[in-house]
Design a protein around this nucleic acid. Structure first.
Lengths: 156, 156
DNA sequence: ATAAAAATGTTCAATGATGAACAATAAAGT
DNA sequence: ACTTTATTGTTCATCATTGAACATTTTTAT
């Protein structure tokens, strides 16, 4: 009866979230193993997929999409550039920004990596019916919205 | 009509999983900010919560529960020990293993941290009705099961 | 026009995580 | 009993990530 005596892990919402976090962690490891044959890791994959989708994006915009700091991009992008997977060209109008794009080699690699990633996702969700997937997606959207408003509102 | 022309991000399961990953990432950052006032970070929190729940666990068992390597524990646990939050005592029967436990100070800190964490979880899932949470939990359990069997079966 | 504020990318030190190699101990096979 | 194999924890080099400080360039205010 006394709610203070209940442990966190007895609360359904808590257990539910722990499941989400655990699934993410395991999936991250599975992706790491799966794409290692291509010589890249999850952070590189995330970058490549976003460049594939948003050609000419800037480092800042990319960092924002990936929810990481700008400095992280400053460390990783030169690596991919040296490997000939991406290009960084100065913007014509704004001398501060670098416009990012995939090279043909990068595009090819990205398509291979996305195929692996998509295959993995379909595999892990194969037991989950389509409508259940949509319900999960809705729940996550709610959560994301709340977390984003929290993020903005933390100027204390 | 041609399914090969569809991009990954057009597939419902893909989008659904991206949402899960994004929610996790944002939540991780929110937790990091929320518990920073206690002088700890998520990896420490995970350790402390597990010691709170499983008194006398070994480093190996702890690493397995957290899905990290043993070496990681060898790096983090001495820090917490020096801060007087945990104790590492040699096992009586097996001279290899170290039995982990919280000190009173560690227990107090852990309770504070769990309160913060639980509050955050309840907050982000406040828009999600209880039955929806259960559906999410079920979906995650399926995913976790598949990922764990994949993990075992990758001896090629 | 000029000064102040903001944005973009870089560098650097600190930290967390990993996997491989290692030493000590225990368990299994012979 | 003795050798081999497994297990536990540590150390080390490597890398991803972060936040702060910085230089450059753009925008905004005055």
């Amino acid at each position: 009866m006394n709610k203070n005596q209940a442990f966190p892990w007895d609360h359904p919402r808590f257990r539910s979230w722990i499941g989400v976090a655990r699934a993410c962690q395991l999936m991250q490891q599975a992706v790491t193993r799966a794409i290692s044959e291509l010589g890249i890791k999850p952070p590189h994959l995330d970058i490549l997929v976003n460049l594939y989708r948003f050609e000419g994006i800037s480092q800042q915009e990319l960092a924002r999409k990936l929810l990481v700091g700008r400095s992280n991009m400053s460390m990783l992008l030169p690596q991919l550039e040296k490997r000939g997977l991406i290009e960084r060209n100065p913007d014509a109008k704004d001398k501060r920004v670098l416009r990012l794009s995939l090279t043909p080699a990068g595009r090819t690699l990205t398509e291979q990596a996305m195929a692996i990633q998509t295959g993995l996702i379909e595999r892990i969700m194969s037991q989950t019916p389509e409508d259940r997937c949509l319900q999960v997606a809705e729940a996550m959207e709610d959560i994301i919205r709340i977390l984003q408003t929290m993020e903005i509102a933390e100027d204390d």
